[in-house]
């Protein structure tokens, strides 16, 4: 199994290893943070020193380390704006106030922010990946339960499942998100952030994330239910009969015989659902979470830079490619018997 994997992907693995080695070399050659900071002008140094004893600090120091390249920006607000930017790459520090280096610096900064580096887990690409992955897992589990309910012979049970699916597919996710985050706590008298410890400074984001996960999961469950149902119903009737003839009950038949065979047929559709959720994740802007799309839109409006969309697209493509690979592996694993 293991050797098969290496054999099958030998070219890709070699390419990945080469890229990794190059990156590590570049990372080692990259100038250190202190070196980057040592280039700041005397005026700026003076401002920073003044800040030490001031209760209202004025200098914003940004340091973005993107493994192979780093970027530092120092700026002040107020009537007289001072701003200095530096990019560090392969042992050299470049001023990044103009030209190519300015764009490079911006790219590093935008990518850094969209990846959510230096922020909590509920931010940027981390938020997008976390929310999407958990939503799809939640959705598939819930979808399986709903699908089994829907094909059940018990009228009330299948009716209930149908109503659920109808409701969640027939209303916009954005409104469901609003209802879960604003309406439910408003009516029931609780706050999402109170689920987490009061001393947790990130509780507000965790609370919003929980609400988002619930809304996304409930919604995805409805879509996954149809995926699971059609997969189950595509399994040959003979399988049910064989299981029954061997004395298996419904639960044993489903969990040991039918669902494992359905998994392979679900994968392509679940993979699609994953990509849909990945894009829908940008709706979390409505409950003040920042995913990749929201951050890139913010940068666009606050800095007027349209270049921000290039790293945004690249980040999305990398995520999609990575998870596409994972789904491919799962599908292969489940179709080994064919």
């Amino acid at each position: 199994m293991k050797t098969g994997f290496f054999k099958q992907y030998s070219k890709q693995l070699i390419a990945a290893a080469v890229i990794l080695v190059i990156c590590i070399v570049l990372a080692i050659l990259k100038p250190a943070k202190d070196e980057l900071m040592s280039h700041t002008s005397p005026e700026m140094q003076k401002m920073i020193e003044a800040d030490e004893s001031s209760s209202r600090k004025r200098v914003t120091v940004t340091y973005n380390d993107l493994f192979i390249i780093n970027y530092a920006s120092l700026s002040t607000s107020g009537a007289k704006v001072m701003s200095e930017k530096y990019v560090g790459f392969v042992g050299k520090v470049y001023p990044a106030d103009e030209g190519v280096m300015k764009v490079t610096g911006q790219m590093v900064n935008y990518t850094y922010r969209m990846l959510g580096c230096g922020e909590n887990l509920m931010h940027g690409a981390k938020l997008t990946i976390l929310l999407t992955t958990l939503t799809v897992i939640f959705g598939v589990v819930l979808g399986t339960i709903l699908a089994l309910a829907k094909i059940s012979k018990k009228k009330w049970l299948s009716g209930l499942a149908s109503a659920y699916i109808f409701f969640f597919r027939g209303t916009p996710l954005l409104i469901q998100l609003f209802v879960v985050y604003f309406t439910v706590p408003g009516v029931c008298g609780f706050a999402w952030r109170d689920i987490f410890s009061a001393s947790d400074a990130e509780a507000v984001y965790k609370g919003a994330f929980t609400a988002a996960l619930i809304a996304f999961g409930l919604n995805s469950g409805a879509y996954c239910a149809e995926i699971v149902r059609s997969a189950i119903q595509s399994i040959d009737k003979g399988q049910f009969e064989a299981a029954k003839a061997l004395g298996m009950n419904y639960f044993q038949t489903m969990t040991r015989i039918i669902i494992p065979q359905s998994v392979r047929r679900m994968i392509p559709n679940v993979s699609n659902e994953f990509i849909m959720v990945l894009k829908d994740a940008s709706l979390v802007f409505a409950i003040s979470l920042m995913d990749i799309t929201t951050i890139s839109k913010n940068i666009m409006t606050s800095e007027g830079s349209y270049l921000v969309f290039i790293p945004a697209l690249v980040i999305y493509l990398v995520i999609t490619a990575f998870f596409g690979f994972i789904f491919d592996k799962i599908e292969k694993k489940f179709s080994v018997y064919e």
Binding site: D236, G238, Q239, E241, A242, A245, I257, P260, Q261, F334
Partner: peptide
């Protein structure tokens, strides 16, 4: 069964 109905997985 006529069509065997073995569990393919």
């Amino acid at each position: 069964f006529q069509r065997f109905n073995l569990f393919p997985h």
